[in-house]
């Protein structure tokens, strides 16, 4: 795989289910009621439960390592939340490489849902040392096959879309 400034990552579609919101909140040990109790969320002015920031952070990290492969290392993840991820929505993560230098790529990530930008952020990722673009761009036989680029078709995170 190559990593060049301007490259776009294939989009990742993530159905926002109640299960994802609750599983993400519990996996991050975040027991704030707005992430699992719809009644409590409404009392606090939210129309429903919504995804916690730790889950968004985890999904952004996954989006980057899914693309760059298991030997890529996240160095920095900086995100800002906007429109909340409510159940029944879908978030589409897109990314564009904004710089590549010294084996490290910076990727601008946007996660858009049905009501706007859920997340905007920047991820700094250290690329595998044998990845083309980090050392010798002509090496196509490098043992980087494990990092084979993914299809450009949007991928679905778990199950196919269900009727909403």
């Amino acid at each position: 795989m190559t990593a060049r400034t301007g490259d776009e990552l294939p989009p990742l579609r993530i159905p926002i289910t109640r299960t994802l919101i609750v599983a993400g909140a519990l996996a991050s040990r975040d027991y704030q009621d707005v992430h699992h109790d719809a009644e409590a969320a409404r009392e606090k002015g939210s129309p429903d439960i919504f995804m916690n920031i730790l889950t968004t952070n985890g999904l952004v990290g996954r989006y980057i390592t899914d693309h760059f492969g298991p030997r890529a290392r996240l160095r920095k993840v900086a995100i800002r939340l906007g429109a909340p991820n409510y159940p029944g929505d879908e978030m589409v993560l897109t990314g564009q490489i904004t710089s590549v230098a010294e084996g490290t790529a910076e990727v601008a990530v946007i996660g858009k849902n049905g009501i706007g930008h859920h997340v905007t952020g920047t991820v700094t990722v250290q690329l595998p040392s044998d990845a083309p673009g980090t050392t010798d761009a002509s090496r196509t036989d490098a043992p980087g096959a494990i990092d084979a680029p993914r299809t450009d078709a949007p991928r679905t995170a778990t199950t196919p879309d269900t009727p909403r």
């Binding site: 599983a23 996996a27 889950t55 985890g58 990290g61 996954r62 899914d66 298991p70 030997r71 996240l74």
Partner: peptide, 19 residues
């Protein structure tokens, strides 16, 4: 965490997802 995120990265759980 990986199950919740749908993260199948084989680097985990030998290391924790940084996020």
């Amino acid at each position: 965490w990986c199950e919740a995120m749908g993260d199948t990265n084989p680097a985990y759980p030998a290391v924790a997802p940084p996020t």
